[in-house]
C-alpha cells in the first residue's frame, strides 16, 4: 500500500468530495434560516408550510448526500 499513487488519488478525491457535504450544510442552513425568519414574521402561516420546509431541506440535503456518496465510492468501490 505504501507509495501507491492511485490510492493517494482516491483518498484525496474522497476528501475533496466530502467538501460537498459542507456545502449542502450551508444550503440546508439557508432553507431553515429563511423559513424561520419568515415564520417569525407571520407565525400564523408557518404551520401550513412545514411540509414545504421539509421538502426544501430534503432537496438541499440530497445533493450533499450525492457528494458523500462519491466520497464513499472513491474510498471503497473504485
Amino acid at each position: 500500500m505504501e507509495g501507491d499513487i492511485a490510492n493517494m488519488g482516491q483518498f484525496i478525491g474522497a476528501g475533496l468530495a466530502a467538501i460537498g457535504s459542507g456545502a449542502a450544510a450551508i444550503g440546508v442552513g439557508h432553507v431553515a434560516g429563511n423559513f424561520l425568519s419568515g415564520a417569525l414574521r407571520n407565525p400564523s402561516a408557518a404551520a401550513a408550510q412545514t411540509a414545504t420546509l421539509f421538502i426544501g431541506i430534503a432537496f438541499a440535503e440530497a445533493l450533499g448526500i450525492f457528494s458523500f456518496l462519491v466520497a464513499l465510492l472513491l474510498m471503497f468501490a473504485v
Binding site: 430534503a58 440535503e61 440530497a62 448526500i65 450525492f66 458523500f68 456518496l69 464513499l72
Partner: peptide, 16 residues
C-alpha cells in the same frame, strides 16, 4: 434517483 439515494445515503452516512 434522488428519491432513492436520499433515503439510502442518509441512513448509510449516519450509520457509517
Amino acid at each position: 434517483v434522488s428519491h432513492s439515494i436520499r433515503l439510502a445515503g442518509n441512513l448509510m452516512a449516519g450509520h457509517a
